[in-house]
Design a protein around this nucleic acid. Structure first.
Length: 733
DNA sequence: AGCACATGTTTTTTT
DNA sequence: AACATGTGCT
C-alpha cells in the first residue's frame, strides 16, 4: 500500500491524528470512533511517510490480543511485519527486565507471581509471623500491597495510616513480602512496572539507552494507566516528547487496580504544547444504542461533556427484559438467540453475552447446553488456574528457577512423598536462619537440624528429582520435559488415586496442556521454558479467544473492553449485582460502574438487549433484586420491553412495562434485598406458607394488570388460585 | 502421615 | 453450590 492510501479513507480528525509527527498528542477517542485504526495507520505512516525506523517505535496496548491485531494490521498496510515493539506495559517491562535484572539484584530467570501466588505467599507470611487472624485476609493485604506498588510506594517508604489495624499489619507484612519475593527470585505483576521505573531512576545510562531506542511512543487506553505506568511512560518520553496517547475518560474501568483517570485528564498539564484531537464520530453503533449509552453516562458528575454521533441510522430499540429468576433469564436469552439466528439471519458468532461477575456464566451455560447452543466462555475459571495444571506448572517453574518458594511448597509433597508439616517446618527454619532458599536447604539436608536420616533422604530425593528434570530440560524440548515430569512423579497415578470421579476430566486437562505446549512450540520464535512460563502469566484469556468459529461468546464486561459485536446481551442488570453492592458507599465507585455499563452498551453495533431477573440464587439461598439504576437512566424513548410467558417471547408497549418495573424500585433502600415482601415477584417453584392452608409450592404465576395470579399446590394436595397482593402468604426458604 | 468427614467461606472486575 | 481448610481418627 502506498503512503497516500494509508490516510485516504479517514475522516478529517482521524487524518489529523495520523499525520501528527513529533511532539505530544492526546487523542480523545469516543467509543467506536476508530481509535485502533488511528493507531495502526499512524504507525504505518511514521514508517512509510516519515521514514522512521520501525524498531524505534514502541506501541503499548491494553491486551496482548490488541497487540497482535495491531501488528497484523500494520503488516497489511506495509506489506511486511514491522520490527516495532507492540505489547502491553507488563510484557514490555518483563522483556526489558530479563536483560537488566542483574542490576537490581535479581536473576534474569526470575519467575512472575500472579494474584494467587501472591495470596499464597502472604498467607505463609501471616502464619510464620503469627499474625494470622480473621481480621487480616491475604486477599485484602495483597490488594493493599498492589495499590502501594501501583503508586510506586516501596516498603521502606510505606507509612501506615494512624489507627487502622490493617495498615499496621501492612507495615509488617509488606517488607517481608518483598524480601521473600526476592529470595524466590520472583516479581509480581506490579513489580514488573515498579522495578522498571526503579531501574530508570537509578541508572541514568540505561534510561538514556531506552529513550534513544524508542523515539516514538504510542499508548492505547490511556485512561486506564496507573501511576507506575504513567511514570514509566514519562521516563521514556519526557526528553523527546514524542508521546501519542489515545483514550476515553468515559471508559475508565480499572480504578480498582490502581488506574488513575487523572493521568489522562492531566495530560495537557504535563505537556502544555500537546496537540489535542477529538474523535466524536462513531462508526460502530446505531444511533439508538448511542442515545441509550449516552443517557446513562450523562449521570456521572465528574466527566466532561462529549458529543458522540453516528450516521449508521437509528436502528431498533434497546430491548429491556425482566424475568422472574436467573434460570428464566438464561432461558430468555436462549430463546432470543434462537430467534435471532433462525428468523433474523444472525450467526452465533455475532452475539456477545456480557455480565458483571464471572459466577454468572454458570447459569447461562447450563441452559445453553440444554438448548444445544454453541458457546465459548472467555475468562472465568481459567485453564491455568486448575489444580492439576498448577501442579505441573509448579514443576516447570522449579526447573526454571528452583528458588521459587511458592512452587516449591506447592509440589514438595505432591504427589505424596512423606514430607509433612514437621519436616517442612525444619527446612523452613534452617533456610531462613541461613538466608538460603528452601531448595538450597534440601540440597544439603545433613545440615538441617533435627532431621533424621530417613527424612534427610526423602527431601534429598526431591532435590535430585529437580536436578534430573533440569538435565532433561537442557537436553530436550518442553514437550519432553512435561512428559518427564509426569513420568518421574507418577502424577497420573496420583490423580487417579485422589480424584475418583473427577480423574478423567483432570487427566484430559493435562492432555490439553500438552497440546497447548505443542502448539506453543510451533508458533513461538524461540520456544524455551522461560518464554513459555512468561506467556502463561502475562497472556490473558481474552487473548486466546477464538473468534473464527461460530459460537456465542460469553465474558465479563471488563474483558469486553475494546471488542464489538452486532448483537449484545447484557445480563444481570440488577441493583446490587450491577452496580455491584460492594460499591454502595462510594460515589466514585458507582461512577466507575456506570462507565462499565457504558462500555458494555457501546460494544453493540445493531442490537442491544438488557436483561434482569427479579430473583436469583446466590451462595445457595435465594434473593430478590430490583432493576439496576442504570436501566432507569436509559432514555425511555429508545426502549421496548420483552417478556417470557410460558416459554414464548412477548413484546410490550414500552411506557407501561417500564413503569411497572420502576414501581418495584419504590419501597425500602435501593440495595436492600427485601427478604419477605408479601406481594409480587413470585416465581414457579417458590415455597410459601398460608395461615389456613399450610405450606405449599407455587406451580404457576400469571401477570394480571398490577398483580400476579398464583396457582399454589398445598401440602394436602389441594390447588388454590390466589392473588399475590391479597393472599396472606409468607415465603419459605 | 494421611484419610474421611465436618465446617466455613466465597463472588467484583484483571495485567 | 463449590471449594478450601480444619479436626479427629487410624
Amino acid at each position: 500500500m502506498n503512503v497516500e492510501e494509508i490516510i485516504a479513507d479517514l475522516n478529517s480528525d482521524q487524518k489529523r491524528a495520523v499525520e501528527h509527527f513529533q511532539g505530544p498528542a492526546l487523542v480523545l477517542a469516543g467509543a467506536g470512533s476508530g481509535k485502533t485504526r488511528v493507531l495502526t495507520r499512524r504507525i504505518a505512516y511514521l514508517i512509510a511517510h516519515h521514514d522512521v525506523k520501525p524498531e524505534s517505535i514502541l506501541a503499548v496496548t491494553f491486551t496482548n490480543k490488541a497487540a497482535d491485531e495491531m501488528k497484523e494490521r500494520v503488516a497489511e498496510l506495509l506489506g511486511s511485519r514491522p520490527a516495532s515493539w507492540v505489547g502491553t506495559f507488563h510484557s514490555f517491562a518483563a522483556r526489558l527486565l530479563r536483560r537488566e535484572a542483574e542490576k537490581l539484584g535479581y536473576g534474569s530467570n526470575f519467575v512472575i507471581y500472579d494474584t494467587s501466588d501472591q495470596r499464597q505467599l502472604i498467607k505463609e507470611i501471616l502464619q510464620d509471623m503469627n499474625l494470622d487472624d480473621e481480621n487480616t485476609s491475604p486477599r485484602q493485604l495483597a490488594s493493599r500491597i498492589s495499590n502501594a506498588k501501583s503508586d510506586l510506594i516501596r516498603p521502606r517508604d510505606f507509612t501506615a495510616a494512624e489507627g487502622s489495624y490493617i495498615e499496621q499489619i501492612m507495615k509488617e507484612i509488606y517488607p517481608e513480602y518483598q524480601k521473600r519475593l526476592k529470595a524466590s527470585n520472583a516479581l509480581d505483576f506490579d513489580d514488573l512496572l515498579l522495578k522498571t521505573c526503579q531501574l530508570f531512576s537509578e541508572y541514568e545510562a540505561v534510561k538514556n539507552y531506552y529513550q534513544q531506542k524508542y523515539r516514538y511512543l504510542l499508548i492505547d487506553e490511556y485512561q486506564d494507566v496507573n501511576n507506575a505506568q504513567y511514570r514509566l511512560s514519562q521516563h521514556l518520553a519526557r526528553e523527546h516528547g514524542n508521546i501519542f496517547v489515545v483514550g476515553d475518560p468515559d471508559q475508565s474501568i480499572y480504578g480498582f487496580r490502581g488506574a488513575d483517570i487523572r493521568n489522562i485528564l492531566n495530560f495537557e498539564r504535563d505537556y502544555p504544547q500537546a496537540e489535542v484531537i477529538r474523535l466524536e464520530q462513531n462508526y460502530r453503533s446505531r444511533q439508538k444504542i448511542l442515545t441509550a449509552a449516552q443517557s446513562v453516562i450523562a449521570n456521572n458528575e465528574s466527566r466532561r461533556e462529549k458529543d458522540l454521533w453516528s450516521e449508521r441510522g437509528p436502528g431498533s430499540d434497546i430491548i429491556r427484559a425482566s424475568l422472574d429468576s436467573g434460570s428464566q433469564e438464561a432461558e430468555y436469552v436462549s430463546r432470543r438467540v434462537k430467534k435471532l439466528t433462525e428468523e433474523e439471519n444472525y450467526n452465533y458468532g455475532d452475539i456477545g453475552i456480557l455480565y458483571r461477575t464471572n459466577s454468572q456464566s454458570r447459569r447461562l451455560e447450563d441452559v445453553f447446553m440444554k438448548m444445544k447452543l454453541p458457546y465459548e466462555i472467555v475468562g472465568g475459571l481459567r485453564f491455568y488456574e486448575r489444580r492439576e495444571i498448577k501442579d505441573i506448572m509448579a514443576y516447570l517453574r522449579l526447573v526454571y528457577n528452583p528458588d521459587d518458594e511458592a512452587s516449591f511448597l506447592r509440589v514438595i509433597n505432591t504427589p505424596r512423598r512423606g514430607i509433612g508439616s514437621r519436616t517442612l517446618e525444619r527446612v523452613k527454619n534452617h533456610a531462613s536462619a541461613r538466608g538460603i532458599s528452601l531448595y538450597q536447604a534440601i540440597s544439603r539436608p545433613s545440615d538441617i537440624p533435627g532431621l533424621t536420616a530417613a527424612y534427610q533422604e526423602r527431601v534429598k530425593e526431591f532435590a535430585v528429582l529437580v536436578e534430573r528434570l533440569q538435565e532433561i530440560n537442557r537436553q530436550g524440548t518442553l514437550v519432553d520435559l512435561v512428559r518427564a515430569v509426569l513420568q518421574e512423579t507418577e502424577y497420573e497415578q496420583h490423580i487417579m488415586d485422589r480424584e475418583g470421579d473427577n480423574a478423567r476430566e483432570r487427566l484430559e486437562n493435562i492432555g490439553e496442556m500438552q497440546n497447548l505446549i505443542r502448539e506453543y512450540m510451533q508458533e513461538a520464535d524461540e520456544p524455551g521454558l522461560g518464554d513459555f512460563l512468561e506467556e502463561v502469566k502475562l497472556v490473558a484469556d481474552v487473548d486466546r479467544w477464538d473468534e473464527s468459529s461460530d459460537h456465542l461468546t460469553m465474558m465479563t464486561l471488563h474483558s469486553a473492553k475494546g471488542l464489538e459485536f452486532p448483537v449484545i446481551f447484557m445480563v444481570g442488570m440488577d441493583e446490587g449485582l450491577f452496580p455491584h453492592e460492594n460499591c454502595r458507599d462510594s460515589q466514585e465507585e458507582i461512577e466507575e460502574e456506570r462507565r462499565l455499563c457504558y462500555v458494555g452498551m457501546t460494544r453493540a453495533e445493531e442490537k442491544l438487549f438488557m436483561v434482569r431477573a427479579r430473583q436469583r440464587r446466590r451462595f445457595g439461598s435465594s434473593r430478590q433484586y430490583r432493576p439496576s439504576r442504570f436501566l432507569q437512566e436509559i432514555d425511555e424513548s429508545v426502549i421496548t420491553c420483552e417478556n417470557l410467558k410460558r416459554g414464548r417471547i412477548t413484546s410490550e408497549r414500552r411506557s407501561e412495562a417500564v413503569t411497572a418495573d420502576i414501581s418495584e424500585a419504590d419501597g425500602p433502600g435501593i440495595f436492600s434485598g427485601s427478604a419477605d415482601r408479601s406481594n409480587g415477584n413470585y416465581s414457579r417453584g417458590d415455597r410459601v406458607k398460608h395461615p389456613e392452608f399450610g405450606r405449599g409450592e407455587i406451580i404457576s404465576v400469571e401477570d394480571e394488570s398490577d398483580d400476579e395470579l398464583l396457582t399454589v399446590r398445598f401440602e394436602d394436595g389441594q390447588k388454590k388460585q390466589l392473588m399475590a397482593s391479597f393472599a396472606p402468604l409468607q415465603r419459605q426458604n
